Simulated scan of single mutants.
Amino acid sequence: MDELADLTETLVSIPSHEDEAAAGDAIEEWLRAETDARVERDDAGNVIARKGATDDPDADALALVGHHDVVPPAERQTTGGGSAGDYVVERRDGRIYGRGAADMKGAVAACMLAFREAEPPAGRELAFASFVGEEVGGEGARHAIDAGFAPDRALVAEGSTDYSKPGVTDVAVAHKGRRASTLVAHGTAAHASEPEAGENAIYRASDAIDVVRGLDAPEATVFGESVTGSLAVTMAHGGETWNVIPERCEVTVDERTVPGDRADLARAEGVAGVEWEVDQDLPPMACGDDAFADAALAVAREVHDELGLDAPERVVKPHATDAGWLAEAGTDCLVCGASEPGEAHTDTESVGIEVLDRCYRIYKGISERPL
Results as ranks from 00 to 15, higher is better:
Gly352Ser: 15
Ile209Cys: 04
Thr182Tyr: 12
Ser193Gly: 12
Ala201Phe: 02
Val171Glu: 07
Glu29Pro: 00
Ala44Asn: 03
Val65Arg: 09
His304Arg: 05
Tyr87Met: 07
Trp242Val: 15
Pro246Asp: 07
Asp332Phe: 00
Tyr97Met: 04
Thr79Ile: 04
Ile362Cys: 03
Gly98Pro: 03
Gly82Pro: 01
Thr252Val: 13
Asp290Thr: 14
Arg369Met: 11
Tyr203Ala: 13
Ser339Phe: 08
Ile96Asp: 05
Ala53Cys: 01
Lys364Tyr: 07
Val227His: 04
Gly85Cys: 06
His143Ser: 14
Ser230Pro: 10
Pro246Val: 08
Leu64Asp: 12
Leu282Ile: 12
Ser164Gln: 06
Ile145Thr: 01
Ser16Phe: 11
Val278Pro: 09
Val132Gln: 08
Ala157Gln: 02
Glu18Asp: 14
Tyr87Val: 12
Thr257Ser: 13
Ala172Leu: 05
Glu18His: 11
Ala268Thr: 15
Asp2Ser: 14
Ala26Gly: 11
Cys336Met: 13
Ala311Cys: 00
Gly133Gln: 10
Leu307Tyr: 00
Asp103Tyr: 05
Ser367Lys: 04
Thr79Ala: 10
Cys359Lys: 03
Ala147Asp: 14
Ile96Leu: 13
Arg38His: 13
Gly342His: 03
Pro151Met: 07
Gly167Ser: 03
Val171Phe: 06
Phe223Leu: 13
Val303Leu: 01
Pro73Phe: 08
Gly342Val: 05
Gly80Lys: 04
Ala190Met: 07
Glu354Cys: 06
Ile353Met: 06
Val65Glu: 10
Gly214Thr: 09
Leu113Asp: 10
Phe115Ile: 11
Glu225Met: 11
Glu158Pro: 00
Leu326Asp: 03
Arg361Tyr: 08
Glu302Leu: 02
Val335Gln: 02
Ala23Arg: 14
Gly167Leu: 02
His345Gln: 09
Ala323Asn: 05
Pro318Asn: 09
Ile209Pro: 00
Lys364Asn: 06
Glu247Cys: 08
Gly45Trp: 01
Gly80Arg: 05
Thr321Cys: 03
Pro341Gln: 11
Leu282Pro: 08
Arg32Val: 14
Ala26Asn: 09
Glu194Ala: 14
Ala201Ile: 04
Ala268Arg: 08
Tyr203Gln: 13
Ile353Trp: 03
Ile145Gln: 02
Cys249Trp: 04
Val89Asp: 00
Leu113Asn: 09
Pro259Glu: 12
Val315Ala: 04
Arg99Tyr: 01
